[in-house]
Write a protein that binds this DNA or RNA. Structure first.
Lengths: 285, 285
DNA sequence: GCAAAATGTGGTAAAATAACTACCTTATAG
DNA sequence: CTATAAGGTAGTTATTTTACCACATTTTGC
Protein backbone atom coordinates (compact mmCIF):
# COMPACT_ATOMS: atom_id res chain seq x y z
CA UNK A 1 0.00 0.00 0.00
CA UNK A 2 2.67 2.51 1.00
CA UNK A 3 4.68 1.37 -1.99
CA UNK A 4 1.64 1.92 -4.17
CA UNK A 5 1.22 5.43 -2.81
CA UNK A 6 4.89 6.21 -3.37
CA UNK A 7 4.68 4.89 -6.93
CA UNK A 8 1.61 6.91 -7.79
CA UNK A 9 2.80 10.03 -6.00
CA UNK A 10 4.47 11.58 -9.03
CA UNK A 11 1.41 11.15 -11.22
CA UNK A 12 -0.73 12.99 -8.71
CA UNK A 13 -1.68 16.62 -8.87
CA UNK A 14 -0.49 19.20 -6.37
CA UNK A 15 -3.12 18.83 -3.65
CA UNK A 16 -3.38 15.08 -3.74
CA UNK A 17 0.39 14.88 -3.54
CA UNK A 18 0.13 16.83 -0.31
CA UNK A 19 -2.22 14.15 0.97
CA UNK A 20 0.17 11.40 -0.10
CA UNK A 21 3.03 13.12 1.69
CA UNK A 22 0.99 13.60 4.84
CA UNK A 23 0.17 9.89 4.89
CA UNK A 24 3.72 8.81 4.09
CA UNK A 25 5.03 11.04 6.85
CA UNK A 26 3.35 8.99 9.53
CA UNK A 27 1.17 6.24 8.13
CA UNK A 28 0.28 4.57 11.40
CA UNK A 29 -1.22 7.71 12.92
CA UNK A 30 -3.43 8.21 9.87
CA UNK A 31 -5.41 5.10 10.80
CA UNK A 32 -6.69 6.94 13.85
CA UNK A 33 -7.41 10.25 12.14
CA UNK A 34 -10.71 11.52 10.81
CA UNK A 35 -10.92 12.80 7.29
CA UNK A 36 -11.05 16.35 8.65
CA UNK A 37 -7.92 15.87 10.73
CA UNK A 38 -5.97 14.39 7.84
CA UNK A 39 -7.18 17.13 5.52
CA UNK A 40 -5.95 19.74 7.97
CA UNK A 41 -2.57 18.12 8.50
CA UNK A 42 -2.11 17.87 4.72
CA UNK A 43 -3.28 21.46 4.26
CA UNK A 44 -6.08 20.59 1.87
CA UNK A 45 -9.86 20.30 1.97
CA UNK A 46 -11.80 17.22 2.97
CA UNK A 47 -13.13 16.34 -0.48
CA UNK A 48 -9.57 16.29 -1.78
CA UNK A 49 -8.70 13.61 0.73
CA UNK A 50 -11.79 11.71 -0.30
CA UNK A 51 -10.91 11.94 -3.97
CA UNK A 52 -7.41 10.75 -3.13
CA UNK A 53 -8.79 7.70 -1.34
CA UNK A 54 -11.01 6.78 -4.25
CA UNK A 55 -8.09 6.90 -6.64
CA UNK A 56 -6.62 4.05 -4.57
CA UNK A 57 -9.58 1.84 -5.24
CA UNK A 58 -11.20 2.33 -1.89
CA UNK A 59 -14.87 2.87 -1.39
CA UNK A 60 -14.13 5.96 0.68
CA UNK A 61 -12.03 7.28 3.49
CA UNK A 62 -12.95 4.72 6.17
CA UNK A 63 -12.35 1.90 3.75
CA UNK A 64 -9.01 3.41 2.82
CA UNK A 65 -8.03 3.60 6.48
CA UNK A 66 -8.77 -0.08 6.94
CA UNK A 67 -6.76 -1.07 3.90
CA UNK A 68 -3.91 1.10 5.09
CA UNK A 69 -4.03 -0.43 8.56
CA UNK A 70 -3.93 -3.91 7.06
CA UNK A 71 -0.96 -3.14 4.87
CA UNK A 72 0.93 -1.60 7.75
CA UNK A 73 0.64 -4.85 9.68
CA UNK A 74 1.92 -7.01 6.86
CA UNK A 75 4.66 -4.51 6.16
CA UNK A 76 5.96 -4.29 9.69
CA UNK A 77 5.52 -7.92 10.60
CA UNK A 78 8.94 -9.24 9.71
CA UNK A 79 11.62 -6.67 9.26
CA UNK A 80 15.29 -7.42 9.05
CA UNK A 81 17.11 -5.72 11.88
CA UNK A 82 20.83 -5.93 12.47
CA UNK A 83 22.17 -7.65 15.53
CA UNK A 84 24.01 -5.22 17.75
CA UNK A 85 27.03 -5.86 19.90
CA UNK A 86 25.12 -5.36 23.14
CA UNK A 87 21.91 -7.23 22.29
CA UNK A 88 20.47 -9.53 24.93
CA UNK A 89 19.87 -13.21 24.15
CA UNK A 90 16.22 -12.42 23.71
CA UNK A 91 16.96 -9.62 21.30
CA UNK A 92 19.37 -11.39 19.00
CA UNK A 93 17.26 -14.54 19.00
CA UNK A 94 14.25 -12.60 17.87
CA UNK A 95 16.22 -10.61 15.32
CA UNK A 96 17.69 -13.68 13.70
CA UNK A 97 14.37 -15.50 13.51
CA UNK A 98 12.64 -12.41 12.20
CA UNK A 99 15.30 -11.78 9.58
CA UNK A 100 15.23 -15.38 8.48
CA UNK A 101 11.49 -15.23 8.09
CA UNK A 102 11.76 -11.94 6.22
CA UNK A 103 14.23 -13.51 3.81
CA UNK A 104 11.95 -16.48 3.17
CA UNK A 105 9.00 -14.21 2.69
CA UNK A 106 10.92 -12.11 0.20
CA UNK A 107 11.90 -15.26 -1.68
CA UNK A 108 8.30 -16.44 -1.66
CA UNK A 109 7.19 -13.25 -3.36
CA UNK A 110 9.96 -13.16 -5.93
CA UNK A 111 10.26 -16.80 -6.82
CA UNK A 112 9.97 -17.76 -10.48
CA UNK A 113 7.23 -20.38 -10.52
CA UNK A 114 7.87 -21.04 -14.20
CA UNK A 115 11.46 -22.05 -13.42
CA UNK A 116 10.27 -24.29 -10.57
CA UNK A 117 7.85 -25.96 -12.91
CA UNK A 118 10.49 -26.50 -15.59
CA UNK A 119 12.93 -27.87 -13.02
CA UNK A 120 10.30 -30.31 -11.75
CA UNK A 121 9.66 -31.47 -15.32
CA UNK A 122 13.31 -32.35 -15.76
CA UNK A 123 13.83 -33.85 -12.31
CA UNK A 124 10.83 -36.09 -12.75
CA UNK A 125 12.17 -37.67 -15.89
CA UNK A 126 15.79 -37.81 -14.77
CA UNK A 127 17.68 -41.07 -14.99
CA UNK A 128 20.06 -39.69 -12.37
CA UNK A 129 19.99 -36.57 -10.22
CA UNK A 130 23.18 -35.13 -8.77
CA UNK A 131 23.49 -32.26 -6.30
CA UNK A 132 26.75 -30.32 -6.25
CA UNK A 133 27.78 -27.84 -3.59
CA UNK A 134 30.93 -26.62 -1.87
CA UNK A 135 31.40 -25.30 1.64
CA UNK A 136 28.11 -24.35 3.25
CA UNK A 137 26.30 -25.27 0.04
CA UNK A 138 27.78 -28.74 0.46
CA UNK A 139 25.47 -29.37 3.39
CA UNK A 140 22.58 -28.08 1.33
CA UNK A 141 23.47 -30.63 -1.37
CA UNK A 142 23.63 -33.38 1.24
CA UNK A 143 20.29 -32.36 2.63
CA UNK A 144 18.79 -32.43 -0.85
CA UNK A 145 20.16 -35.93 -1.33
CA UNK A 146 18.38 -37.14 1.79
CA UNK A 147 15.16 -35.52 0.87
CA UNK A 148 15.07 -36.80 -2.70
CA UNK A 149 16.18 -40.24 -1.62
CA UNK A 150 13.24 -40.43 0.73
CA UNK A 151 11.00 -39.76 -2.21
CA UNK A 152 12.56 -42.68 -4.07
CA UNK A 153 14.43 -40.66 -6.67
CA UNK A 154 17.80 -41.72 -8.13
CA UNK A 155 19.97 -39.19 -6.38
CA UNK A 156 23.58 -38.53 -5.40
CA UNK A 157 25.35 -35.56 -3.83
CA UNK A 158 28.96 -34.44 -3.94
CA UNK A 159 30.74 -31.78 -1.97
CA UNK A 160 34.22 -32.06 -3.39
CA UNK A 161 35.45 -30.57 -6.61
CA UNK A 162 37.15 -33.63 -8.03
CA UNK A 163 34.15 -35.91 -7.77
CA UNK A 164 31.94 -33.17 -9.14
CA UNK A 165 34.21 -32.71 -12.16
CA UNK A 166 34.30 -36.42 -12.83
CA UNK A 167 30.57 -36.84 -12.53
CA UNK A 168 29.93 -33.74 -14.65
CA UNK A 169 32.27 -35.00 -17.38
CA UNK A 170 30.70 -38.45 -17.34
CA UNK A 171 27.13 -37.20 -17.42
CA UNK A 172 24.88 -37.36 -20.45
CA UNK A 173 21.41 -36.58 -21.74
CA UNK A 174 18.76 -37.56 -19.22
CA UNK A 175 20.92 -36.74 -16.22
CA UNK A 176 20.05 -33.71 -14.14
CA UNK A 177 22.73 -31.85 -12.24
CA UNK A 178 21.73 -29.26 -9.66
CA UNK A 179 24.54 -26.84 -8.90
CA UNK A 180 24.17 -25.03 -5.60
CA UNK A 181 26.14 -21.92 -4.76
CA UNK A 182 24.92 -18.90 -2.92
CA UNK A 183 27.15 -16.29 -4.46
CA UNK A 184 27.28 -18.05 -7.84
CA UNK A 185 30.81 -16.79 -8.20
CA UNK A 186 32.82 -19.84 -7.19
CA UNK A 187 35.02 -20.51 -10.21
CA UNK A 188 35.01 -24.28 -9.88
CA UNK A 189 31.25 -24.44 -9.73
CA UNK A 190 30.84 -22.29 -12.82
CA UNK A 191 33.31 -24.43 -14.75
CA UNK A 192 31.65 -27.64 -13.59
CA UNK A 193 28.25 -26.32 -14.62
CA UNK A 194 29.58 -25.53 -18.08
CA UNK A 195 31.25 -28.91 -18.33
CA UNK A 196 28.04 -30.70 -17.38
CA UNK A 197 26.03 -28.59 -19.80
CA UNK A 198 28.34 -29.52 -22.68
CA UNK A 199 27.65 -33.23 -22.18
CA UNK A 200 23.94 -32.81 -22.74
CA UNK A 201 22.93 -33.13 -19.10
CA UNK A 202 20.29 -30.75 -17.79
CA UNK A 203 21.94 -28.24 -15.48
CA UNK A 204 19.86 -26.47 -12.85
CA UNK A 205 21.45 -23.67 -10.87
CA UNK A 206 20.29 -22.80 -7.37
CA UNK A 207 22.04 -19.52 -6.89
CA UNK A 208 21.98 -15.75 -6.66
CA UNK A 209 20.12 -14.02 -9.46
CA UNK A 210 22.30 -12.60 -12.27
CA UNK A 211 25.44 -14.28 -10.94
CA UNK A 212 28.13 -15.80 -13.22
CA UNK A 213 26.77 -19.25 -12.43
CA UNK A 214 23.21 -18.20 -13.24
CA UNK A 215 24.41 -16.94 -16.62
CA UNK A 216 25.80 -20.29 -17.74
CA UNK A 217 22.84 -22.46 -16.71
CA UNK A 218 19.68 -23.02 -18.77
CA UNK A 219 17.43 -23.38 -15.70
CA UNK A 220 18.00 -20.98 -12.83
CA UNK A 221 16.23 -21.04 -9.48
CA UNK A 222 17.35 -17.70 -8.24
CA UNK A 223 17.68 -16.69 -4.65
CA UNK A 224 17.11 -12.97 -4.22
CA UNK A 225 19.78 -10.69 -2.82
CA UNK A 226 19.68 -10.28 0.92
CA UNK A 227 19.66 -6.58 1.60
CA UNK A 228 21.23 -6.70 4.99
CA UNK A 229 24.52 -8.56 4.73
CA UNK A 230 25.47 -8.13 8.32
CA UNK A 231 28.50 -10.04 9.57
CA UNK A 232 26.40 -11.41 12.40
CA UNK A 233 23.71 -12.91 10.24
CA UNK A 234 25.13 -13.88 6.91
CA UNK A 235 23.48 -17.21 6.32
CA UNK A 236 19.79 -16.80 5.81
CA UNK A 237 20.03 -17.51 2.11
CA UNK A 238 20.80 -21.21 2.52
CA UNK A 239 17.47 -21.62 4.25
CA UNK A 240 15.87 -20.21 1.13
CA UNK A 241 17.79 -22.76 -0.92
CA UNK A 242 16.65 -25.59 1.34
CA UNK A 243 13.07 -24.45 1.05
CA UNK A 244 13.31 -24.29 -2.72
CA UNK A 245 14.63 -27.84 -2.67
CA UNK A 246 11.65 -28.84 -0.52
CA UNK A 247 9.44 -27.32 -3.17
CA UNK A 248 11.18 -29.25 -5.93
CA UNK A 249 10.97 -32.54 -4.05
CA UNK A 250 7.31 -31.94 -3.38
CA UNK A 251 6.64 -30.99 -6.98
CA UNK A 252 8.25 -34.15 -8.28
CA UNK A 253 6.44 -36.29 -5.75
CA UNK A 254 3.08 -34.80 -6.60
CA UNK A 255 3.62 -35.53 -10.28
CA UNK A 256 4.61 -39.09 -9.63
CA UNK A 257 1.21 -39.71 -8.12
CA UNK A 258 0.09 -42.21 -5.55
CA UNK A 259 2.72 -44.91 -6.14
CA UNK A 260 5.20 -43.27 -3.84
CA UNK A 261 3.01 -43.61 -0.74
CA UNK A 262 3.93 -47.26 -0.40
CA UNK A 263 7.55 -46.36 -0.84
CA UNK A 264 7.43 -43.77 1.91
CA UNK A 265 5.83 -46.31 4.19
CA UNK A 266 8.64 -48.76 3.45
CA UNK A 267 11.26 -46.14 4.36
CA UNK A 268 9.48 -45.43 7.60
CA UNK A 269 9.29 -49.09 8.51
CA UNK A 270 12.98 -49.56 7.83
CA UNK A 271 13.81 -46.89 10.40
CA UNK A 272 11.50 -48.23 13.07
CA UNK A 273 13.92 -50.68 14.76
CA UNK A 274 16.38 -47.83 15.36
CA UNK A 275 13.89 -45.85 17.39
CA UNK A 276 12.20 -45.68 20.72
CA UNK A 277 8.59 -46.34 19.85
CA UNK A 278 5.73 -44.04 20.68
CA UNK A 279 2.30 -43.41 19.30
CA UNK A 280 2.04 -41.20 16.23
CA UNK A 281 5.35 -41.93 14.51
CA UNK A 282 6.59 -38.82 12.68
CA UNK A 283 8.23 -38.72 9.31
CA UNK A 284 11.60 -37.23 10.20
CA UNK A 285 14.86 -38.44 11.71
CA UNK B 1 -8.05 -10.36 18.62
CA UNK B 2 -10.38 -13.20 17.66
CA UNK B 3 -8.79 -15.28 20.40
CA UNK B 4 -9.45 -12.45 22.82
CA UNK B 5 -13.08 -12.29 21.78
CA UNK B 6 -13.46 -16.04 22.13
CA UNK B 7 -11.89 -15.95 25.57
CA UNK B 8 -14.09 -13.16 26.80
CA UNK B 9 -17.23 -14.52 25.19
CA UNK B 10 -18.36 -16.50 28.22
CA UNK B 11 -18.01 -13.56 30.57
CA UNK B 12 -20.22 -11.43 28.38
CA UNK B 13 -23.91 -10.81 28.91
CA UNK B 14 -26.55 -12.10 26.57
CA UNK B 15 -26.68 -9.30 24.01
CA UNK B 16 -22.98 -8.70 23.81
CA UNK B 17 -22.47 -12.41 23.35
CA UNK B 18 -24.71 -12.17 20.30
CA UNK B 19 -22.39 -9.47 18.98
CA UNK B 20 -19.33 -11.64 19.65
CA UNK B 21 -20.94 -14.55 17.82
CA UNK B 22 -21.87 -12.38 14.86
CA UNK B 23 -18.28 -11.20 14.57
CA UNK B 24 -16.79 -14.66 15.03
CA UNK B 25 -19.13 -16.02 12.37
CA UNK B 26 -17.48 -13.98 9.65
CA UNK B 27 -14.84 -11.63 10.98
CA UNK B 28 -13.55 -10.37 7.67
CA UNK B 29 -16.91 -9.11 6.52
CA UNK B 30 -17.35 -7.11 9.72
CA UNK B 31 -14.54 -4.78 8.68
CA UNK B 32 -16.74 -3.52 5.87
CA UNK B 33 -19.94 -3.25 7.88
CA UNK B 34 -21.41 -0.19 9.56
CA UNK B 35 -22.39 -0.37 13.19
CA UNK B 36 -26.06 -0.50 12.12
CA UNK B 37 -25.47 -3.43 9.80
CA UNK B 38 -23.57 -5.39 12.42
CA UNK B 39 -26.21 -4.62 15.04
CA UNK B 40 -28.87 -5.92 12.72
CA UNK B 41 -27.01 -9.10 11.86
CA UNK B 42 -26.41 -9.74 15.56
CA UNK B 43 -30.04 -8.94 16.38
CA UNK B 44 -29.20 -6.20 18.87
CA UNK B 45 -29.25 -2.43 19.00
CA UNK B 46 -26.47 -0.16 17.85
CA UNK B 47 -25.42 1.07 21.30
CA UNK B 48 -24.94 -2.54 22.37
CA UNK B 49 -22.42 -3.01 19.61
CA UNK B 50 -20.73 0.18 20.66
CA UNK B 51 -20.54 -0.95 24.28
CA UNK B 52 -19.13 -4.25 23.11
CA UNK B 53 -16.40 -2.49 21.18
CA UNK B 54 -15.42 -0.36 24.14
CA UNK B 55 -15.05 -3.39 26.33
CA UNK B 56 -12.28 -4.48 23.97
CA UNK B 57 -10.29 -1.37 24.66
CA UNK B 58 -11.23 0.37 21.49
CA UNK B 59 -12.15 4.01 21.31
CA UNK B 60 -15.33 3.13 19.45
CA UNK B 61 -16.69 1.09 16.62
CA UNK B 62 -14.48 2.43 13.81
CA UNK B 63 -11.42 1.96 15.97
CA UNK B 64 -12.52 -1.57 16.77
CA UNK B 65 -12.93 -2.32 13.08
CA UNK B 66 -9.38 -1.18 12.38
CA UNK B 67 -7.96 -3.30 15.18
CA UNK B 68 -9.94 -6.26 13.96
CA UNK B 69 -8.72 -5.75 10.40
CA UNK B 70 -5.13 -5.60 11.61
CA UNK B 71 -5.45 -8.77 13.65
CA UNK B 72 -7.04 -10.60 10.76
CA UNK B 73 -4.02 -9.85 8.61
CA UNK B 74 -1.52 -11.08 11.16
CA UNK B 75 -3.65 -14.10 11.85
CA UNK B 76 -4.07 -15.18 8.26
CA UNK B 77 -0.64 -14.23 7.08
CA UNK B 78 1.14 -17.53 7.43
CA UNK B 79 -1.07 -20.53 7.84
CA UNK B 80 0.04 -24.07 7.28
CA UNK B 81 -1.99 -25.59 4.51
CA UNK B 82 -1.57 -29.10 3.21
CA UNK B 83 -0.33 -29.67 -0.28
CA UNK B 84 -2.98 -31.38 -2.37
CA UNK B 85 -2.48 -33.88 -5.12
CA UNK B 86 -3.75 -31.53 -7.82
CA UNK B 87 -2.05 -28.32 -6.72
CA UNK B 88 -0.41 -26.20 -9.39
CA UNK B 89 3.28 -25.30 -9.13
CA UNK B 90 2.26 -21.88 -7.91
CA UNK B 91 0.05 -23.37 -5.23
CA UNK B 92 2.43 -25.90 -3.76
CA UNK B 93 5.32 -23.45 -3.90
CA UNK B 94 3.37 -20.93 -1.92
CA UNK B 95 2.08 -23.52 0.52
CA UNK B 96 5.53 -24.86 1.30
CA UNK B 97 7.04 -21.43 1.79
CA UNK B 98 4.11 -20.34 3.90
CA UNK B 99 4.22 -23.45 6.05
CA UNK B 100 7.95 -23.13 6.53
CA UNK B 101 7.54 -19.55 7.63
CA UNK B 102 4.69 -20.53 9.94
CA UNK B 103 6.90 -23.16 11.55
CA UNK B 104 9.71 -20.68 12.10
CA UNK B 105 7.32 -18.13 13.49
CA UNK B 106 5.91 -20.69 15.90
CA UNK B 107 9.43 -21.60 17.01
CA UNK B 108 10.27 -17.94 17.46
CA UNK B 109 7.37 -17.51 19.84
CA UNK B 110 8.01 -20.67 21.82
CA UNK B 111 11.77 -20.68 22.03
CA UNK B 112 13.36 -20.90 25.46
CA UNK B 113 15.70 -17.92 25.59
CA UNK B 114 17.11 -19.08 28.90
CA UNK B 115 18.26 -22.34 27.30
CA UNK B 116 19.81 -20.42 24.40
CA UNK B 117 21.67 -18.25 26.82
CA UNK B 118 22.93 -21.22 28.83
CA UNK B 119 23.99 -23.01 25.65
CA UNK B 120 25.91 -19.94 24.51
CA UNK B 121 27.69 -19.77 27.87
CA UNK B 122 28.95 -23.30 27.48
CA UNK B 123 29.80 -23.05 23.78
CA UNK B 124 31.81 -19.92 24.39
CA UNK B 125 34.09 -21.57 26.89
CA UNK B 126 34.33 -24.92 25.10
CA UNK B 127 37.72 -26.39 24.39
CA UNK B 128 36.09 -28.45 21.65
CA UNK B 129 32.61 -28.38 20.11
CA UNK B 130 31.20 -31.46 18.34
CA UNK B 131 27.95 -31.67 16.39
CA UNK B 132 26.33 -35.06 16.04
CA UNK B 133 23.50 -35.93 13.71
CA UNK B 134 22.26 -38.86 11.66
CA UNK B 135 20.35 -38.90 8.41
CA UNK B 136 18.81 -35.53 7.63
CA UNK B 137 20.16 -34.20 10.92
CA UNK B 138 23.61 -35.14 9.64
CA UNK B 139 23.46 -32.30 7.13
CA UNK B 140 22.34 -29.99 9.89
CA UNK B 141 25.42 -31.01 11.90
CA UNK B 142 27.63 -30.41 8.88
CA UNK B 143 26.09 -27.02 8.35
CA UNK B 144 26.68 -26.13 11.97
CA UNK B 145 30.30 -27.14 11.59
CA UNK B 146 30.73 -24.73 8.70
CA UNK B 147 29.07 -21.92 10.48
CA UNK B 148 30.98 -22.28 13.72
CA UNK B 149 34.24 -22.77 11.89
CA UNK B 150 33.74 -19.47 10.14
CA UNK B 151 33.44 -17.87 13.52
CA UNK B 152 36.78 -19.36 14.52
CA UNK B 153 35.48 -21.88 17.04
CA UNK B 154 37.09 -25.28 17.62
CA UNK B 155 34.46 -27.40 15.94
CA UNK B 156 33.95 -30.86 14.43
CA UNK B 157 30.88 -32.67 13.07
CA UNK B 158 30.13 -36.36 12.67
CA UNK B 159 27.30 -38.09 10.90
CA UNK B 160 28.16 -41.69 11.56
CA UNK B 161 27.41 -43.63 14.69
CA UNK B 162 30.82 -45.15 15.23
CA UNK B 163 32.76 -41.91 15.15
CA UNK B 164 30.15 -40.32 17.36
CA UNK B 165 30.46 -43.10 19.94
CA UNK B 166 34.22 -42.86 19.95
CA UNK B 167 34.25 -39.10 20.27
CA UNK B 168 31.59 -39.21 22.98
CA UNK B 169 33.54 -41.81 24.96
CA UNK B 170 36.76 -39.86 24.63
CA UNK B 171 35.24 -36.51 25.60
CA UNK B 172 35.79 -34.83 28.94
CA UNK B 173 34.94 -31.74 30.96
CA UNK B 174 35.20 -28.60 28.86
CA UNK B 175 34.00 -30.29 25.71
CA UNK B 176 30.56 -29.45 24.37
CA UNK B 177 28.62 -31.98 22.36
CA UNK B 178 25.53 -30.88 20.47
CA UNK B 179 23.25 -33.80 19.63
CA UNK B 180 20.83 -33.10 16.82
CA UNK B 181 17.78 -35.25 16.16
CA UNK B 182 14.36 -34.12 15.13
CA UNK B 183 12.32 -36.87 16.66
CA UNK B 184 14.70 -37.36 19.60
CA UNK B 185 13.84 -41.05 19.50
CA UNK B 186 16.80 -42.48 17.61
CA UNK B 187 18.22 -45.06 20.02
CA UNK B 188 21.84 -44.53 19.04
CA UNK B 189 21.64 -40.81 19.59
CA UNK B 190 20.11 -41.19 23.01
CA UNK B 191 22.78 -43.67 24.04
CA UNK B 192 25.56 -41.46 22.69
CA UNK B 193 24.15 -38.47 24.55
CA UNK B 194 24.17 -40.44 27.78
CA UNK B 195 27.66 -41.72 27.13
CA UNK B 196 28.97 -38.20 26.52
CA UNK B 197 27.19 -36.91 29.59
CA UNK B 198 28.83 -39.53 31.78
CA UNK B 199 32.30 -38.34 30.79
CA UNK B 200 31.68 -34.85 32.11
CA UNK B 201 31.21 -33.19 28.73
CA UNK B 202 28.40 -30.66 28.36
CA UNK B 203 25.65 -32.19 26.24
CA UNK B 204 23.24 -29.93 24.41
CA UNK B 205 20.26 -31.49 22.67
CA UNK B 206 18.65 -29.87 19.64
CA UNK B 207 15.49 -31.89 19.42
CA UNK B 208 11.76 -32.25 19.85
CA UNK B 209 10.43 -31.12 23.22
CA UNK B 210 9.77 -33.91 25.75
CA UNK B 211 11.43 -36.56 23.60
CA UNK B 212 13.59 -39.39 25.03
CA UNK B 213 16.71 -37.51 23.93
CA UNK B 214 15.52 -34.29 25.57
CA UNK B 215 15.05 -36.17 28.82
CA UNK B 216 18.65 -37.33 29.07
CA UNK B 217 20.30 -33.99 28.25
CA UNK B 218 20.97 -31.18 30.74
CA UNK B 219 20.53 -28.41 28.16
CA UNK B 220 17.70 -28.77 25.67
CA UNK B 221 16.96 -26.47 22.77
CA UNK B 222 13.56 -27.75 21.90
CA UNK B 223 11.91 -27.58 18.54
CA UNK B 224 8.14 -27.40 18.87
CA UNK B 225 5.91 -30.06 17.39
CA UNK B 226 4.78 -29.37 13.87
CA UNK B 227 1.03 -29.69 13.83
CA UNK B 228 0.63 -30.64 10.25
CA UNK B 229 2.82 -33.68 9.58
CA UNK B 230 1.79 -34.05 5.99
CA UNK B 231 3.70 -36.57 3.89
CA UNK B 232 4.37 -33.89 1.35
CA UNK B 233 5.98 -31.43 3.70
CA UNK B 234 7.64 -33.27 6.50
CA UNK B 235 10.87 -31.35 6.77
CA UNK B 236 10.24 -27.87 7.99
CA UNK B 237 11.64 -28.63 11.43
CA UNK B 238 15.23 -28.89 10.26
CA UNK B 239 15.03 -25.27 9.14
CA UNK B 240 14.11 -24.41 12.70
CA UNK B 241 17.15 -26.33 13.90
CA UNK B 242 19.39 -24.49 11.46
CA UNK B 243 18.01 -21.18 12.58
CA UNK B 244 18.59 -22.05 16.23
CA UNK B 245 22.17 -22.92 15.32
CA UNK B 246 22.47 -19.52 13.64
CA UNK B 247 21.29 -17.98 16.87
CA UNK B 248 23.86 -19.92 18.88
CA UNK B 249 26.71 -19.00 16.56
CA UNK B 250 25.67 -15.38 16.70
CA UNK B 251 25.36 -15.44 20.46
CA UNK B 252 28.84 -16.87 20.88
CA UNK B 253 30.29 -14.40 18.41
CA UNK B 254 28.70 -11.45 20.14
CA UNK B 255 30.15 -12.52 23.45
CA UNK B 256 33.60 -12.96 22.03
CA UNK B 257 33.61 -9.31 21.09
CA UNK B 258 35.47 -7.46 18.39
CA UNK B 259 38.44 -9.81 18.02
CA UNK B 260 36.64 -12.02 15.59
CA UNK B 261 36.16 -9.33 12.95
CA UNK B 262 39.74 -9.70 11.81
CA UNK B 263 39.29 -13.43 11.72
CA UNK B 264 36.22 -13.17 9.52
CA UNK B 265 38.12 -10.89 7.18
CA UNK B 266 40.91 -13.48 6.94
CA UNK B 267 38.42 -16.21 6.03
CA UNK B 268 36.93 -14.02 3.35
CA UNK B 269 40.33 -13.20 1.89
CA UNK B 270 41.24 -16.87 1.78
CA UNK B 271 38.23 -17.58 -0.40
CA UNK B 272 38.81 -14.72 -2.78
CA UNK B 273 41.10 -16.48 -5.28
CA UNK B 274 38.43 -19.14 -5.84
CA UNK B 275 35.89 -16.61 -7.00
CA UNK B 276 34.95 -14.40 -9.89
CA UNK B 277 35.42 -10.94 -8.47
CA UNK B 278 32.75 -8.31 -8.34
CA UNK B 279 32.06 -5.25 -6.28
CA UNK B 280 30.43 -5.81 -2.90
CA UNK B 281 31.80 -9.23 -1.96
CA UNK B 282 29.24 -11.12 0.12
CA UNK B 283 29.95 -13.34 3.11
CA UNK B 284 28.62 -16.66 1.84
CA UNK B 285 29.77 -19.46 -0.42
C1' DG C 1 -39.60 -14.88 52.88
C1' DC C 2 -41.11 -10.79 50.85
C1' DA C 3 -40.83 -6.17 49.43
C1' DA C 4 -38.16 -2.37 48.21
C1' DA C 5 -34.02 -0.54 46.70
C1' DA C 6 -30.15 -0.89 43.92
C1' DT C 7 -27.71 -2.41 40.25
C1' DG C 8 -27.31 -4.15 35.75
C1' DT C 9 -28.90 -4.75 30.98
C1' DG C 10 -30.53 -3.20 26.69
C1' DG C 11 -33.24 -0.24 23.91
C1' DT C 12 -34.99 4.46 21.87
C1' DA C 13 -34.23 8.76 20.29
C1' DA C 14 -31.68 12.72 19.78
C1' DA C 15 -27.28 14.97 19.31
C1' DA C 16 -22.82 15.11 17.50
C1' DT C 17 -19.59 13.87 14.39
C1' DA C 18 -17.83 12.31 10.20
C1' DA C 19 -18.13 11.48 5.38
C1' DC C 20 -19.84 12.48 1.03
C1' DT C 21 -22.14 15.14 -2.88
C1' DA C 22 -23.18 18.88 -5.68
C1' DC C 23 -21.83 22.89 -7.03
C1' DC C 24 -19.01 26.89 -7.53
C1' DT C 25 -14.56 29.34 -7.85
C1' DT C 26 -10.00 29.71 -9.34
C1' DA C 27 -6.14 28.56 -11.86
C1' DT C 28 -4.00 27.10 -16.10
C1' DA C 29 -3.36 25.80 -20.75
C1' DG C 30 -4.50 26.33 -25.43
C1' DC D 1 -10.60 34.58 -23.93
C1' DT D 2 -12.42 30.19 -23.46
C1' DA D 3 -12.33 25.49 -22.00
C1' DT D 4 -11.02 22.35 -18.80
C1' DA D 5 -9.12 20.62 -14.89
C1' DA D 6 -8.17 21.29 -9.99
C1' DG D 7 -9.64 22.31 -5.61
C1' DG D 8 -12.55 24.35 -2.19
C1' DT D 9 -17.27 25.70 0.17
C1' DA D 10 -21.35 24.51 1.89
C1' DG D 11 -25.00 21.63 2.46
C1' DT D 12 -26.76 16.83 2.81
C1' DT D 13 -26.61 12.34 4.27
C1' DA D 14 -24.85 8.65 6.83
C1' DT D 15 -22.82 7.00 10.88
C1' DT D 16 -21.58 6.95 15.43
C1' DT D 17 -22.14 8.30 20.01
C1' DT D 18 -24.48 10.07 24.07
C1' DA D 19 -28.15 10.63 27.22
C1' DC D 20 -31.81 8.79 29.09
C1' DC D 21 -35.42 5.55 30.10
C1' DA D 22 -37.60 1.00 30.85
C1' DC D 23 -37.32 -3.37 32.26
C1' DA D 24 -35.15 -7.21 34.56
C1' DT D 25 -32.40 -9.13 38.03
C1' DT D 26 -30.19 -9.22 42.23
C1' DT D 27 -29.44 -7.69 46.83
C1' DT D 28 -30.70 -6.17 51.29
C1' DG D 29 -33.51 -4.82 55.16
C1' DC D 30 -37.32 -5.91 57.79
Amino acid sequence: MLTKIRQKRDQLNKSERKVADAILLNPSIVTQLSIAALAKSAGVSEPTVNRFCRSFMSKGFPDFKIQLAKSLVSGSMFVTRSVEQDDSAEQYTDKIFTSTIATLDAARKQIDVKAISTAVDHLMQAKQIAFFGLGASGSVARDAQHKFFRFNLPVVAYDDVLMQRMVAAASHTGDVIVVISYTGRTKDMVEIAQLAGSTGATVIALTLEDSPLAKVCPIVLSVPHVENTDVYMPMTSRLTQLTILDVLATGVTLRRGVGFHQHLEKVKQSLKPTRYAIEGEAAEV
